[in-house]
């Protein structure tokens, strides 16, 4: 069934046709279902939407103001993230409820032992900390400030294999801020890059966009560990061929740059290659943290920074991030 009608639009005469299928429902209501869609419209709309997308991409890339929109949208979509996390949580729950009594007893015993070992270390630690503070006072250097931690759970992983990101279940409601470091039981994992009310997105050490200032625990040689995009591998940049670094060395965060606190384990040196043809040593290191397995993680807040943030307030948002970093690095 089709109909055509002419339409006069200025000097041009348009002939418009539409074809429609008329269906009758049992109730006798006639619904009209168009079979064809007008092609000219589709092309125009596609062009408009494509240009709009490109504009959005550009603005998002160039300006930080878009973060507000993004965090709003992320809050809107966070139920999806929580729902997606249900199957793994169910599995965990199932494991817990159906696990053997004997197995639980054994695990409990093992944990008790581990706790004892850790407590012994902690006993020594208090004495060492006191000594450290005394020595620092003698040297008139600023006191190391301990960090506060927020316990969080990983609720999502970036589906894109090219980017290494996680989503954790704490957001701006719990005081999580962009730039906050994330650690697990064995080392630094990464840092928060964006947040919404109920969740935050974390960039992992191994992402090719991530770099972290480190130093060798044995002798203090400084370097920058850059992500390679491969899981379980970082690379040290611009390390001279003569630098004293050997396989098995522990790298800790150096605290330079002010984003990551000093002294957390970051990675273990895996392979050191000195190529005479290259200006720098080729050093591959493996992150200590269980980047692909940890579910319970800790978000660090240094007390110093928490205070700073309160006093800076809106100022820190307007300043470029580098300026903020340099500012706080002076205190170290």
């Amino acid at each position: 069934m089709g109909e055509c009608f002419a339409e006069k639009n200025g000097p041009v005469l348009h002939l418009r046709c539409s074809f429609q299928l008329v269906t009758k429902t049992p109730l006798g209501i006639t619904t009209i279902k168009p079979i064809f869609i007008k092609d000219s419209d589709v092309g125009l709309r596609m062009l408009v939407l494509a240009v709009l997308s490109l504009l959005l991409i550009f603005t998002d890339y160039k300006f930080r103001e878009m973060d507000v929109l993004r965090s709003g949208l992320t809050t809107l979509i966070s139920p999806i993230q929580y729902v997606v996390d249900i199957p793994p949580r169910m599995m965990e729950w199932l494991n817990r409820t159906t696990s053997d009594y004997q197995v639980l007893l054994e695990e409990n015993e093992g944990l008790r032992g581990q706790s004892l070992v850790l407590q012994r270390k902690l006993q020594k630690m208090t004495a060492l900390t006191a000594e450290n503070i005394r020595l620092r006072e003698l040297l008139k250097s600023t006191e190391q400030i301990d960090e506060e931690v927020t316990l969080a759970q990983v609720i999502g992983v970036d589906p894109d294999p090219f980017s290494h990101e996680l989503v954790v279940n704490k957001g701006s409601n719990e005081g999580v801020r962009v730039g906050q470091p994330l650690v697990d039981a064995s080392g630094i994992m990464g840092q928060v890059i964006s947040n919404s009310r109920f969740s935050s997105r974390v960039l992992l050490l191994t992402d090719s966009r991530h770099a972290i200032p480190v130093q060798v625990n044995r002798n203090g040689v400084r370097a920058i560990a850059v992500g390679t995009g491969l899981t379980g591998e970082l690379q040290l940049l611009h390390l001279p061929g003569t630098a004293d670094i050997i396989e098995g060395d522990l790298l800790i965060s150096s605290g330079l740059g002010g984003r990551f606190p000093y002294g957390y384990p970051v990675a273990t040196v895996g392979q050191v290659r000195h190529d005479p043809g290259q200006p720098f040593a080729n050093v591959k290191v493996h992150p200590n943290a269980q980047l692909t397995r940890s579910r319970q993680v800790l978000l660090l807040t240094s007390r110093e920074k928490a205070l700073e943030n309160e006093s800076l307030g809106e100022l820190s948002q307007q300043m470029p991030p580098d300026a903020v970093i340099n500012d706080s690095a002076e205190g170290l």
Partner: peptide, 30 residues
């Protein structure tokens, strides 16, 4: 279901993946 749906869906996917806003919207629209 057409271009509008594709675009909105793309924006949601961008937010979910944390990619540049508009990236998936552009690809899905095309």
């Amino acid at each position: 279901v057409g271009l509008g749906t594709a675009w909105v869906l793309g924006i949601l996917l961008d937010v979910l993946e944390g990619s540049l806003l508009g990236l998936n919207a552009l690809a899905l629209t095309v």
